[in-house]
Amino acid sequence: MKAKHQRLVLVLLAIVAIGGAALLAMFALKDKAAYFYSPSDIARLKPAIGTPLRLGGLVADHSIKRDADGVTIHFIVTDGIANISVRYTGITPDLFREKAGVVAEGALTAPDQFSANTILAKHDEKYMPPGMAGQKPPMGKLQ
């Protein structure tokens, strides 16, 4: 075996080892590195009431209700499996709307009740001009 072939084998082995280690680490981080929990993650992991966390999902259709004070809203976050109702007081981003993605920062007040102090809008990977005929609107898909 020539020296350069030996070096090639060594470098490739090192790459495989480092790559494998990184891959294992990333999968171990699956829950920890999640930016938000979906309603069914919360049902599965059962975080303690009052622990700060982020809740992500779709705003359920026809679920946004506004209180008499004009700034407090109630809506339901769903991932198609579980639902959590959210209460928030403040200004929402422009892209916050029904059937669109949302991330709420706050804490659970009951196993299916969430009090948010920040609302972020999450948009999907679809981009489409307004009123493009024969296409579904680029909303409503959560990943």
Partner: peptide
């Protein structure tokens, strides 16, 4: 792999 704010 993970839930992110950034879209897929």
């Amino acid at each position: 792999w993970w839930n992110t704010l950034h879209q897929p």
